[in-house]
């Protein structure tokens, strides 16, 4: 009777302790901001690893997501004789939800897992302790550039995803299925508001960038320094990122678009 209770208590205490460590970790990582301003090369190197190498994946996924939206939207909308609204449907779903969310999920699989594995291995092979021995703060040298590279890359990647996705929808809807081009764009422009939709989309992707990268670097830094520990940390990084992105998306959507 007492044992399950004890396990429950231990699990909750562990979860809270981890949450506390994660917050301390973020605060410490933020103290490294002057360091990356002084040495922007560190940040640029990580932007390359995190951002540039994800472009192809993000662009192709955006294209296919937009094309599928165009196809499915056309099937449903043509039942009501409202094919002209296809542009609104594709753009609204991409700008408001799919752009930031799918990009964040892909980003956590492509870049987040790599960050976790890299930092976890650095810890397991005692490179982080080695840096400390040489009076180099691994927090400022390793963690902060990666954190900010992720945070800065996410909105750019999400913007790319959304834009290419809309052209995917345009390709299928207008060029293949024959929706009128003028009403495709004009209805879209009439329905998508700059402040309400585009700015909120950028805010969302920025928030997801913080969440995904924070989880990824923290899981790596907090990993048990064995090969099994690193592999578990990598899995957790992707799983927690997905949960956190989808959960916070609901909250952000409720705050932004709920009345």
């Amino acid at each position: 009777m007492i044992d399950p209770l004890q396990r429950l208590g231990a699990a909750s205490l562990n979860a809270f302790a981890k949450l506390g460590r994660a917050n301390l970790f973020l605060a410490l990582a933020l103290t490294g901001v002057p360091e990356i301003l002084r040495r922007p090369g560190l940040l640029i190197r990580q932007m390359y690893m995190v951002g540039v190498l994800s472009i192809l994946l993000i662009a192709l996924s955006g294209l296919f997501v937009g094309m599928v939206l165009g196809l499915q939207g056309y099937n449903v909308l043509s039942d009501f004789g409202a094919e002209e609204s296809l542009g609104v449907m594709v753009a609204a779903s991409l700008v408001r939800e799919l752009g930031p969310v799918v990009t964040a999920l892909l980003f956590s699989g492509r870049a987040g897992s790599a960050l976790t594995a890299e930092i976890g291995l650095m810890k397991a092979t005692e490179q982080l302790s080695g840096m400390e021995m040489m009076a180099v703060d691994p927090m400022k040298r390793v963690i902060t550039p990666r954190l900010f590279a992720g945070i800065l890359s996410m909105p750019l990647l999400a913007g790319l995803f959304t834009y290419i996705g809309i052209y995917g929808g345009y390709f299928v809807g207008v060029l293949l299925l024959g929706v009128d081009e003028g009403s495709f764009w004009s209805q879209m422009q009439a329905a998508i508001d700059f402040r309400e939709d585009i700015i909120n989309s950028v805010i969302k992707s920025l928030a997801f960038g913080v969440i995904v990268t924070w989880i990824a670097v923290f899981e790596g830094y907090d990993a048990v320094p064995t090969s099994e520990g690193v592999s578990r940390a990598t899995t957790r990084s992707v799983v927690y990122s997905a949960f956190a992105v989808l959960g916070s998306d609901f909250i952000l959507t409720a705050l932004m678009f709920g009345e």
Partner: peptide
């Protein structure tokens, strides 16, 4: 590496700018 990052940032900002101008009612 720096050139590629420059290209990446330019493409990303360009996509956001085009989204604002072409897709929304900013104009």
């Amino acid at each position: 590496v720096e050139i590629w990052v420059g290209v990446f940032v330019a493409i990303g900002l360009g996509a956001l700018f085009l989204l604002a101008m072409q897709v929304s009612n900013l104009a």
